[in-house]
């Protein structure tokens, strides 16, 4: 469900990492849907947070998931090329 556009990026990052810390595996695409209008700002921040989290906690990496570390890094590269 879409949430308020007033939520800061900082608070979204907090919510995103809290999910990891609770043992869940939050999906970036869910957050982009939840916070419409913030997609451009959010995507890099969430991808970086998730890539870093999975790098430091590789046991949480679901390798066959479309949001696995390998796929996230590939997409980060694509973002760079899209600049």
């Amino acid at each position: 469900m879409a949430k308020s556009n007033n939520t800061s990026i900082e608070r979204v990052l907090t919510e995103f990492l809290d999910e990891f810390h609770q043992g869940k595996n939050p999906k970036i695409k869910d957050y982009l849907l939840r916070y419409p209008g913030k997609e451009k700002q959010l995507i890099r921040e969430l991808m970086a947070a998730k890539a870093a989290y999975l790098t430091f906690h590789p046991e949480r990496d679901e390798k066959e998931n479309e949001e696995s570390l390998a796929n996230l890094l590939k997409r980060l590269k694509d973002l760079k090329e899209d600049k």
């Binding site: 947070a49 870093a52 980060l76």
Partner: peptide, 8 residues
Amino acid sequence: NSKVSKFL
């Protein structure tokens, strides 16, 4: 985190 994003 923004800096890490740029770094990556």
